[in-house]
Amino acid sequence: MRLIRLGVGLLLVLGLLAGCTSTPSVVTDYDPEFSFGELTRFRVELAEQEDGNSLLISPFTLSHLQRVIESHLASRYESAGEDGEADFVVRYHIVVEDRLDVRSYDQRYGFGYYGYGPWYRYPYSHGPSPRVYRQGTLIIDIARAEDNKPLWRGVAEQRLYDGLTPQEQRQRLSAAVTEVLSNFPPVR
């Protein structure tokens, strides 16, 4: 009996830990008329962060992000360098914004002083509980080099947590780049 309890407890802990590992949500969109098989050479342009919140992002993080994008694409395409002839141009942006999450919860079924349960007649509940959190968005745009016609866009969003070191932030950004660019070129 004790082994069963221990096994169930271990499964619950593993389930909670698996739920805590968060991957960014990724959405992509593309021009269905374009033949992506024609692309052979790329160029990554420097990010221009203009928004006030985005100015808080370190230039070292932006240069790291550019290197990750270049190395990921270089495994499938030829790099044209900064001024070389390219078939497509890659632009990236990072947006950090505050968002509001409003939730309400009911303590009637909680674990109060007497262990209130469904038999407790007085519904003791709190009203909405607003929480402000930071949301990070990575946007990668791919356009045709000759006329800047948009071809493909990938967006990754993830909730940001305070207390991350710059190295941990870069690891998360690298993972987000990998998630987004794994959908390029689109499969029809």
Rank of each mutant, 00 (worst) to 15 (best):
L6G: 04
G7R: 07
G7H: 06
V8R: 11
V13F: 05
L14Q: 06
L14C: 10
L14I: 04
G15K: 00
L16G: 15
L17P: 01
P24W: 03
S25G: 02
S25Q: 14
V26K: 00
T28F: 00
D29C: 05
Y30F: 09
E38I: 08
L39W: 00
R41M: 01
R41F: 11
R43K: 15
V44H: 06
E45Y: 01
A47N: 09
E48I: 10
E50N: 13
G52R: 11
S54I: 00
L56C: 00
I57Q: 08
S58G: 04
S58T: 05
S63E: 03
H64W: 06
R67T: 12
V68H: 09
L73W: 02
Y77R: 03
E82W: 01
G84Y: 05
E85V: 06
E85H: 11
V90P: 00
V95L: 13
E97R: 15
D98Y: 09
L100E: 15
R103D: 14
D106W: 02
Y109L: 14
Y113G: 02
G115K: 02
G115M: 01
G115C: 01
Y116Q: 09
Y120P: 02
H126G: 04
G127F: 12
S129N: 11
P130R: 10
V132M: 09
Y133Q: 10
R134H: 06
Q135Y: 03
I139M: 05
A145N: 07
N148W: 02
N148E: 12
K149C: 07
L151P: 03
W152R: 04
R153Y: 09
V155P: 05
V155L: 07
V155G: 05
Q158T: 04
R159N: 04
R159E: 07
Q169P: 02
R170P: 07
S174P: 04
S174T: 14
V177N: 02
E179V: 03
E179Y: 06
S182W: 02
R188N: 11
